[in-house]
Simulated scan of single mutants.
Amino acid sequence: MARQPRPPHIVLSPEEQQRLTELARRRKTLRGLAARAQLILLSAEQPYTSLTQIGEQLGVCRHTVRTWRQRFVQDRIAGLRDAPKPGAPRKIQDDDVERLIRLTLDSVPANATHWTTRSMAQASGMTQNAVFRIWRAFGLRPHLSESFKLSQDPLFIEKVRDIVGLYLSPPAKALVLCVDEKPQIQALERNGGVFPMQPGEIEKRAHDYVRHGTTTLFAALNAQVGTVIGKCYPRHRSEEFKAFLEEVNQNVPADLDVHLILDNYVTHKAKVVQDWLVGHPRFQLHFTPTSGSWLNLVESWFALLTTRQLRRGSFISTQALETAIERYIQQTNEDPKPFTWTKTADQILESVARFCKRQLSRVEEQKYRETQE
């Protein structure tokens, strides 16, 4: 069989070099097009490298390298794009897709707060299936909504750096504890039968219940180890918080300083607590920013407690509820799992800044559209 001639060396103009580099690096470039752009760049940078070696660098076969080199030599950058697919022509053109996306982003139906595939199909003249496919392709989910809260604390940056610093680089001869209370935990006795889980069916239970009072859990999480100091109290006043600090003091070795991470709840700053701290100088309090309780890792442990013990539990009294909580704390301490903080303070602040800039640009864009209308 005759050997196929090797495609000529690829020489790029400065404009082609810049354009191919953008296609290879830009996140929004289709994966296949980005790979082809990288293939051509490698071919131009390594003119005497074999097709097989270039293919090995990109994870493709030599035939693929040859094909796209030939396409580029023939049609330049335009030759790297997908050829038209066989079959019937498209009924929905790019302009139609753009119109539907703009309609989704810039308007709401007259009789609802958000679009559905059915209402959008009626408004756009497309089928529900077409609307669904376009929304999925562009990541549009009008039926979902999330809430957010930006901290207005003037010391937000300083507090973030302080707390994250304690997580990532705790001080020597000191113990860092994440402290908070989970108030008003209801002792609910579930009435009615329970139909256990079956193949193809989830567990079903009656929604009737009887309240038997409430309790408040104070907890201190050692995030590095995963152990918890916890105690239940009937109320969550400053007196109870002071009593819990005494509990922590008794459970922490006397030769260690204690750094407590907690929120800005008034109980934590009461005079009786301040007086107690004066008599216990090894305790230092670090407050999270206002509306920044997500910085306190004990909230993650509270979520586990709720999911695994409280949400589906049935308790005939507050004593039974507290016994279940104490049992869960004991099991946690017998087999602790560390709560590892991964992001640095700079990464968090950069993320917040990006979010603010993105939201600000959206507001400005919306105002501009309103002025144009």
Rank of each mutant, 00 (worst) to 15 (best):
E98W: 00
T214G: 02
D180P: 06
K91T: 14
A243K: 08
P253K: 06
T288M: 04
R6D: 14
W115I: 02
Q4R: 15
D162F: 01
D96G: 00
Q57C: 03
S291D: 14
R369A: 01
H63T: 13
T52N: 11
E239Y: 08
V258R: 01
Q46W: 05
L221D: 07
L41V: 12
T113S: 06
L305A: 01
I185A: 01
A110C: 15
E334S: 08
Q122P: 00
L304Q: 13
A35G: 15
P338Q: 14
T215A: 15
E16N: 03
Q74A: 13
V65W: 02
T344E: 04
I202A: 09
V108F: 12
T340M: 08
L155N: 11
P253H: 03
D96R: 00
L58C: 14
V298C: 04
Y233S: 05
M1F: 06
D94A: 08
F241M: 00
T67G: 06
A130Q: 10
R6K: 11
F148R: 07
S119G: 11
D346Y: 11
Y48R: 10
Q366C: 03
G79K: 02
Q319A: 15
S147R: 12
A78T: 14
L321C: 02
V73S: 04
P7W: 06
R161T: 09
C356P: 14
F339K: 07
R19M: 13
L321D: 04
W68Q: 03
Q122T: 09
L277E: 02
P14H: 04
E373Q: 15
S293R: 07
I77P: 05
P89L: 08
L260A: 04
K182S: 09
E373R: 14
G279Y: 09
F283D: 05
Q70M: 10
E146A: 02
H207K: 15
D94H: 07
A24W: 11
L321K: 05
R62Q: 10
V272A: 13
L256F: 12
L168C: 13
E15W: 05
T117W: 10
L360A: 07
L349G: 05
A44S: 12
S293I: 07
D255I: 03
R71M: 03
Y233K: 11
R311P: 05
E181V: 13
K367D: 07
F315K: 06
I10M: 02
R237F: 12
T227Q: 09
R36L: 14
L188K: 13
R190G: 06
T29F: 03
A219Q: 03
R205E: 10
R36Q: 09
P281Y: 08
F339P: 04
T290K: 03
K173N: 14
A110R: 08
Q319E: 15
G125S: 02
